[in-house]
Design a protein around this nucleic acid. Sequence first.
DNA 1: TTGTACGCGTTATCAT
DNA 2: ATGATAACGCGTACAA
Lengths: 358, 358
Amino acid sequence: VVKALTSRRRATAAARHGRSGTPTIYEVAKHAGVSIATVSRVQRRAEAVAEPTRRRVEQAIAELAYRPSMVARSLAQGRHDAIGIVFPDLSGPWYSAVILGYEEASAAEGRSVLILGTHGRQNADAQVVDLAARVDGLVIMGQTVDDAVVADIVRRGIAVVLLARPANEHTKDVDSIRTDGRSSGSALVSHVLDHGHHDVAFVGDPGASPDASERWSAFKREHARRGLRLRPAVPSGYREADGRRVAFALLRGPDRPAAVVAANDEIAMGVIAAARATGIDVPRELAVTGWDDIPVAEHLTPPLTTVRQPMQELGRRAAALLHERLSENRTAPRHEVLPTELVVRASCGCQSPTVEGD
Amino acid sequence: VVKALTSRRRATAAARHGRSGTPTIYEVAKHAGVSIATVSRVQRRAEAVAEPTRRRVEQAIAELAYRPSMVARSLAQGRHDAIGIVFPDLSGPWYSAVILGYEEASAAEGRSVLILGTHGRQNADAQVVDLAARVDGLVIMGQTVDDAVVADIVRRGIAVVLLARPANEHTKDVDSIRTDGRSSGSALVSHVLDHGHHDVAFVGDPGASPDASERWSAFKREHARRGLRLRPAVPSGYREADGRRVAFALLRGPDRPAAVVAANDEIAMGVIAAARATGIDVPRELAVTGWDDIPVAEHLTPPLTTVRQPMQELGRRAAALLHERLSENRTAPRHEVLPTELVVRASCGCQSPTVEGD
DNA sequence: TTGTACGCGTTATCAT
DNA sequence: ATGATAACGCGTACAA
């Protein structure tokens, strides 16, 4: 009775797909005159199969244009061979570079990549949890979701890497990767002050992100070290338009600074645009620096002095951390920190561009 | 006997997952004192369930932190609720913008997005076929794979949209989307010639892509229309470094042109950089135009005159075409063409920036 | 309204 | 070396 039931079940499956759609392993087996186990073995090139049998099966696979169902395989194996990445916004050049590095490294390891932009949506948490149900591992960038969601995903056994997100007590057991901008940040601010500018404004919102906060700290630190008067930070969004708007007010105001240290390159672009529109020469009348070294930076006029972030490398290393967890069964949390470097171009007042390591 | 077998099967499944890992629908059912069918109904908010029962199940789901397995669901339903996109290279700003639009529109429809960059790899075909086994639909950009692969994927019942890829007899039944650069291209070349430049060079490789070919055609067409001497195209890769290298030779050569129409913005950037390094003023001594209107274009010095591609919109519309096939059961092939527009800035010699529609 | 049991297409274990 | 079949976790006819 049992045998009869089972073979009837299988028969229907094979028959159904024999007619329409893509062929299943049952069809290939029938076509080659073997069992599905043998087809599976041949298909996975794994176990020992006699040469003549293998050839028969391979021919059947070719004739039927058989492709195994990744879904069925995933269900049987309990894994996806896919990993994901969550970012707040793809429109910035920063994130695309990270994703590129991530995709490249992941594809090389044979893993598919799923992307999800939260775009500051309200249901971002639900979307991220959904994504987590489709992957073996996940990179979460910045402040896209909160710690509770991260913890939930980790509890489900999904490998997680936090990227450019500050560690705290809730996430200290989760892998993380970030850059260290302190040393380069000090170098940048120092460099600006070395130009003799003693009235420098920081444009950006220190409270907006850990990165911005770190940059503002470097700014404060160097001022304190030299005993210089510290101007309060000039709040600004992180986009070019924000920087431009804020800079117009700043440059036309009563207390125009001699230099601007912007929290990122896009803000710096806005400052330069505002200066030009106001008839202020950069860098002669106003030195400007940025942060990140996005691709545009070197093509601006003047070319932007900034701090370079290894964006593609961040993505690549994040993929590598995931790979270690998934394929090499690492369990101890790792926290990687990548160095940044000061890139001196002309917007600070220098003539000849040079690059200094971090 | 049959009943005994079945319940034993189910019991093992539930028991195994009762101990470790994530809970299954069986556990939730047991916890709530209902059958898995009821849990499934509640979970999908679809069919009618008595209110008290629903509450019990929802509580069980919450207590166990149950999340349905997307893989099992996919296998049972025969679909993925995921779509993919294949691009040659993410490093260009062009592709990231398209992908952004695609991701945004897809996420809004509740579909996950898988990305695959072929990077000119040799095994790109295999990777694309692999990706196709994980999605319901797929956008294929440019010349990433050849027609045979596309046909194979379509035959498997995967919805395909070709993006920025010329149609031919093999792919005429496949959805496609592209931009029409003819009219804007003519307008661009016309504009340059109207500036009085009668010795204009086209920098780019017409054979490299359909886009480049279309652009070169516009160049030829306008020259023919005015009966002007046509310079042969100056071959160049599509990257900034390529344009710069080629431009150095061109500008130092014996037959320096009065203007350069570059096949894309990145090449144009290279040309401008080379001109500056050679001491040639742009646009006074050399007019330069680009193509695509990448984000940098307006920030160059001088701001670049170019043809704007609706890149995000391309991605959004591609997602919409897929959605029509998958959710609205459209079967007739659609071929969409999006307009481009001439963007006049200063690099052509104009003073005040304006925008003309296509 | 709720429950039973089959089916989805693989992989993997255990016989043979 | 090969075959039979349990198991993966869900959706859903069909029955009750």
